[in-house]
Design a protein around this nucleic acid. Structure first.
Lengths: 102, 102
DNA sequence: CATTTCTTCTACTATGCAGAATAAATGCCA
DNA sequence: TGGCATTTATTCTGCATAGTAGAAGAAATG
């Protein structure tokens, strides 16, 4: 699983029921201090969905100017499993390394 | 930085002066329990070198059958920095998540 | 010159990235 | 009150970077 895929999946876990485009992007930018384009975000969500790692549903329009219907995303069990596996692979590679050498 | 790039860079740190193709591959397969093809390994090392993240030197042939000269690799400071940055980005995304939800 | 160890090559798929274009809603006002 | 500007949000398109596999090739010894 790619790095951005992991990061986005983790944002979904954190955001829970409020995970749609804008807040996902904000959460990532705020935490990692790196900007992520809109295209990269949706493209990646799309791929995650193709793989069955996330699901999405269209919400109701909200009564505010420009309140177009949102598309909410949710991390699914296979996605969470893949996330843990990837994390573990990196962890065992870091494990026991001399901090002075990294 | 890609996941495999990270994993390979970490293997280089661990192996120190004995980091060439075969042991790099073994170290990764042993620790992560996942197989990695020879092509994927060298291709990635090549890209890491293009980016200045690793350097390589050709060793002397060893006096054993098939002892063709090895190509030794070493992680360079820019590579180590990139490694730490990537790790941090993932760490802040994991930070504070409810373990039950992951 | 057969065998062994190790690296390079080639072709393809998957992931990341950017920003313009599009869609769907509300607010304003002639 | 009909239409258009504005706002929020998503989709589309094209290219760049990273990952994968395994056959082929190179360089050594027995």
């Amino acid at each position: 699983m790619g790095e951005l895929e992991q990061i986005i999946l983790l944002a979904l876990v954190r955001l829970g029921d409020n995970a749609y485009g804008v807040p996902i992007r904000q959460d990532i930018e705020k935490r990692t201090k790196r900007s992520i384009s809109i295209g990269a975000l949706y493209r990646t969500l799309e791929r995650l969905e193709d793989k069955g790692f996330v699901s999405s549903r269209t919400g109701d329009p909200t009564p505010e100017r420009g309140g177009r219907a949102k598309r909410f995303f949710r991390a699914e069990p296979p996605g969470l499993r893949a996330l843990r596996r990837t994390r573990e692979a990196l962890d065992v590679m870091w494990e026991g390394l001399d901090p002075k050498r990294v």
